[in-house]
Amino acid sequence: MIELRDVHKAFGSNKVLQGVDLKIDKGTSMVIIGGSGTGKSVTLKCVLGLVTPDSGQVLLEGQDVASNRSNAERDAFLARFGMLFQGGALFDSLTVWQNVAFRLLRGSLKKPKEEARAIAVEKLRRVGLKPETADMFPAELSGGMQKRVGLARAIAAEPEIIFFDEPTTGLDPIMAGVINELIREIVVEMGATAMTITHDMSSVRAIADNVAMLHGGVIHWTGPVSEMDDASDPYLRQFINGSAEGPIEAVR
């Protein structure tokens, strides 16, 4: 279980997070929605420890993530996570399979090369890519294929928790639908806890068990996805309907 307690983070005078409280139960899929620049990515990076909160706590199964000080503890902590980055963030200098098997080729999870490659090819197959792609370089792939490779890399070491940073941004609607479905399937079959940030409502409906809306540096609304459409919160209504009129300023 992941829990954020009153998390604050400012960059200079820009107060991005102003007391975020959020709970994600084990094995559930939480989707955080919110406009551009509302701190969705920062929230996610706080959980991973890529960004240190100014105040407040991030707890993973009751333990403060900031308490993982030594290298070995950090390593063990991060080994529980997989993350799909917005642009894929694939390493251009490595082939597709070396990207997917990155964690399996070094560090505490190191496996023999053949075994790591076999796992990589298997994960590529799971995300719908042929074994031939394994020896290509990321630059030779289309945007949708890069997303799939990113997804394969995120699940390569069987993580308990998977983060998805805007998984459908930059994809056409059909490809977005395919990726959404893939994410849902994988999360369910692995029994993983998922945390997704997006502003794509089709993703929300496809992926989420629970939804949280981030606005003004705090969680403005949170609840099961089934209750989202009936919620009366004007901010949430405006976001779902994508209307320019409403309490959220259109120029930010």
């Binding site: 991973l48 390593d75 991060l78 080994a79 993350m83 980055f85 963030a89 964690r103």
Partner: peptide, 17 residues
């Protein structure tokens, strides 16, 4: 470029300093 395209963050999440 690795930093701008989040590859540095990706390294960290893959337990690589």
């Amino acid at each position: 470029t690795m930093k701008v395209t989040e590859q540095i963050d990706a390294l960290v999440t893959l337990s690589t300093n």
